[in-house]
């Protein structure tokens, strides 16, 4: 199968493409996880990644972040290799990633976004000011001196997004940002994301497709391969079907707009 976005035709026209995957394959110990993945994201675009557990969502994120190398195919992040371009990504990992006992304040968590600015020693007053600004943007400034582990799930999520923002990213990459967050908080949360989206592209992994049609412009389904659906084409029935736990139930035979690609 020929990759739909061949690099030869793409480079000259899409100057604002910030991430492009071309025919990416990846296998763990010869077990294929991702097959022939091709898609791209433009500046200030919003995209949601959905898919069953074990379908390769996390692997896809790790490839984009340069933590894994594709077996074949190319990943171009801000026109460079992922390792060279990833400092422009603001990344928020999943909550399960953290030790619930760790003694650290909210401010110190956010400051980690500035790790690339210091070679040794401690963070400066300027860095602390930037951290406070990022916290303020997520309405968490009042919690700066609280212990991170004492916050609720939703509050921790916001702190981790503030940490990603302090990196001054052009692409925000959020892994399961709505896990452990209750419905009321979620409304606020998407308002915040919409605000941020004016400045940067946002790519998020979520199981919660209810918001997808309102916020993100396209959905990519990751299950070994990748299919892209512009949200405009997702009907209510499609979303219900996806909600019904079976991600494979999205219809893959409908016509895609120019934003998506042909499944053929």
């Amino acid at each position: 199968m020929i990759a739909p976005n061949s690099p030869a035709t793409a480079t000259s026209t899409d100057t604002d493409t910030i991430l492009r995957l071309t025919g990416v394959n990846f296998a763990y110990d010869n077990v294929p996880v991702l097959r022939d993945v091709s898609f791209s994201i433009h500046a200030r675009e919003s995209m949601c990644i959905v898919g069953p557990n074990g379908g390769g969502k996390s692997t896809l994120l790790k490839l984009i972040l340069g933590l894994l190398k594709p077996d074949s195919g190319a990943i171009e992040l801000f026109g460079c290799q992922p390792k060279a371009g990833r400092h422009r990504i603001g990344y928020m990992p999943q909550m399960v990633h953290f030790d619930p006992m760790f003694p650290i304040t909210v401010r110190d968590v956010v400051l980690m976004g500035k790790l690339d600015c210091i070679s040794a020693g401690w963070f400066s007053r300027h860095h602390k000011k930037l951290a406070m600004e990022a916290l303020a943007e997520l309405d968490m400034a009042d919690y700066a001196d609280r212990r991170f582990s004492n916050l609720s799930g939703g509050q921790r999520q916001r702190v981790l997004i503030a940490r990603a923002l302090v990196c001054e990213p052009d692409l925000l990459l959020l892994d399961e940002p709505t896990a452990n967050v209750d419905q009321a908080v979620e409304e606020d949360f998407y308002a915040t994301l919409e605000k941020l989206n004016a400045r940067m592209a946002i790519m998020l992994v979520s199981h919660d497709l209810g918001f997808v049609s309102r916020f993100v412009k396209s959905v990519i389904c990751v299950n070994r391969t990748v299919h892209i659906h512009p949200t405009a084409d997702l009907t209510g029935r499609d979303i219900r079907e996806v909600y019904g736990e079976d991600m494979a139930a999205i219809r893959h035979d409908h016509r895609c707009s120019s934003e998506g690609h042909d499944h053929s």
């Binding site: 990633h97 690339d116 040794a120 990196c167």
Partner: peptide, 22 residues
Amino acid sequence: LIYYSKFVAICFDQEFAELRGV
């Protein structure tokens, strides 16, 4: 003490530290 910030970062979230160029 000199590398306090780096050590805290790799204790708390090694992956994120790596992404920030540590």
